[in-house]
């Protein structure tokens, strides 16, 4: 079993209301002043090895399905280390 990790973040220039809410909660709780942005991590598990073709296909899924290019950027598509059984 191999795992491909896809990471998606809201575009830097656009509003991230969830990140803003978290930053506000941290400030109110006295836990510090941060700018927070909240993204998503997907784990796609497959049987066997990750071939270059499969990785390419996941890149395309990341761009078309797992993210919406209008509001988000795919910031990472990689094979997770140490999970190959």
């Amino acid at each position: 079993m191999s795992v491909i990790v896809v990471e998606v973040m809201p575009k830097a220039e656009l509003l991230d209301p969830q990140g803003k809410a978290i930053a506000g909660a941290l400030r109110r709780a006295g836990r510090g002043e941060f700018q927070v942005r909240q993204g998503k991590r997907f784990e796609l598990a497959v049987d066997g090895e990750v071939t270059p073709e499969l990785l390419e296909s996941v890149r395309s899924i990341a761009a078309d399905v797992l993210s919406n290019g209008v509001i988000e950027d795919v910031v990472g598509v990689r094979v997770a280390a140490g999970v190959t059984a």
């Binding site: 809201p10 509003l15 209301p17 969830q18 803003k20 809410a21 919406n68 209008v70 509001i71």
Partner: peptide, 17 residues
Amino acid sequence: LVEAHLLPGGLIRNDHG
């Protein structure tokens, strides 16, 4: 409709959360 690319742009969480 926006996700199907029939209309432009995107819709995200309300700014006040």
